[in-house]
């Protein structure tokens, strides 16, 4: 691949996260470079989703430091991650079921809207202009994801694969510099997976978005990732290029069990 991978933008150092007595993450360190596709893999319950929740501020680790663009990050709330241009999708689809596709994706741009509720009530001046301006951006996302035909459909009526795509659209609408994808291809058939891979690669390629990806499909992970980190029981057991990870003894043991 000819793309240029930049400097480290997210550096996690010795992260530990506990829920009561349960150790979800223990002393994990890894970094993410600008413009790369960084995958996190591991068996079920390894702490992958917890890791993403730490990155975007839903969980607060008890120990460890997080550096975002070289600055140490203090305790933060989830909405602050959005302001720092980190967007994400969820393992279980977390769309707003009662709203149309268009409204869901429009919601992704909410941090960029400046008008207040009084202007909204009067539908006057800035509120109206903003609505039009952001609609244009949202239509670009809709074009990119090829979902023009369903823009007015309530998301609850869509099939699973399309819902996943809309959720990606909602994240993309925020024009994030970093995109966290939590199992974007779970439960999809081969065609849907291929589409999703294409979208992820295009996002990375065209917009230069850094992507942190959790995925169980090893074929996909090994194909599209620049670097892979492997977790097992909340510990890091491997980190490096896809080929290195594939041949790592610990990783093989975690996936296939001891004795192989």
């Amino acid at each position: 691949m000819s793309k240029k991978i930049g400097d480290v933008i997210l550096d996690l150092q010795n992260i530990s996260l506990r829920f009561g007595g349960v150790k979800a993450l223990t002393d994990i360190s890894f970094d993410v470079r600008e413009h790369e596709i960084r995958s996190i893999i591991g068996p079920n319950g390894a702490g992958k989703s917890s890791m993403l929740n730490v990155i975007n501020g839903v969980y607060h680790p008890q120990d460890g430091k997080i550096f975002w663009h070289g600055q140490e990050r203090r305790k933060m709330e989830p909405h602050m991650a959005a302001q720092q241009n980190i967007a994400r999708t969820f393992q279980n689809i977390a769309l707003f079921k009662g709203m149309s596709v268009l409204d869901n994706i429009m919601t992704g741009r909410i941090t960029k809207m400046k008008s207040n509720f009084i202007e909204h009530a009067l539908w006057f001046g800035r509120a109206k202009n903003e609505e039009l301006e952001h609609r244009r951006k949202v239509e670009e996302v809709i074009d990119f994801l090829e979902i023009q035909h369903i823009r007015k459909t309530p998301v609850g009526r869509l099939p699973y694969g399309l819902q996943k795509r809309v959720e990606l659209g909602r994240a993309l609408a925020a024009e994030p510099s970093m995109l966290l994808l939590d199992e974007p291809m779970a439960g999809m058939n081969v065609e849907e997976k291929q589409d999703m891979c294409r979208f992820i690669l295009d996002v990375n390629d065209q917009f230069g978005t850094t992507i942190v990806l959790i995925e169980h499909d090893m074929g996909v992970v090994m194909d599209i990732s620049d670097r892979v980190v492997v977790l097992d029981y909340g510990k890091k057991i491997g980190d490096g290029l896809p080929d290195d990870v594939k041949n790592n003894e610990d990783v093989i043991r975690a996936y296939l069990g001891a004795g192989h």
Binding site: V58, A81, F90, A94
Partner: peptide, 16 residues
């Protein structure tokens, strides 16, 4: 509506 339908996702998107 975002808060109504899924408050965690709403806050991750940047809704306070």
């Amino acid at each position: 509506m975002a808060v109504r339908d899924m408050d965690v996702a709403a806050s991750v998107i940047g809704i306070r």
